[in-house]
Amino acid sequence: MKKEIASFKVNDRAHEVLITPNMTLSELLREHLGLTGTKNACGAGECGSCTVLVDGKPILSCSTLAIAVQDKEILCIEGLSRGPELHSLQEAFIDAGAIQCGFCTPGMIMTAKAMLEGNPNPTRDQVKEGLGGNICRCTGYVKIIDAVMGAADTLSKGGK
């Protein structure tokens, strides 16, 4: 197996990493860049915990090879806040109490971010549909949907 030095753009920062072809994007983020906000859960593309944005679209980082996203813009949960200032979605999840164990939260927030960019004022049903690929085993989803609706409201009033 060939090793190579590959360049990545993660959260607007350039990185050079020694990679092998069998390294997944979630391994790159968590184990080589120390960005452990992105979670690995099922490893089978079922749960959405590992969701990050590649060129603005939510994808599953556990099932994506790092080598295949060298030329792309990668955004993960650590890229949302600006220093201590949280993103509106993060604030909304805290305010709504949409976090229990927290394992699904980074994936939920990344999926929600992409959804709100495409549809800034979704209905509750549209939020449910948009988060269809993210599983939460604690909350029953009500507060997660509340949070996304709240964030949509803040963002449409000019929040960040």
Partner: peptide, 9 residues
Amino acid sequence: ISSVQAKNM
């Protein structure tokens, strides 16, 4: 199909 991620990939 419910997963947005699966449809993007």
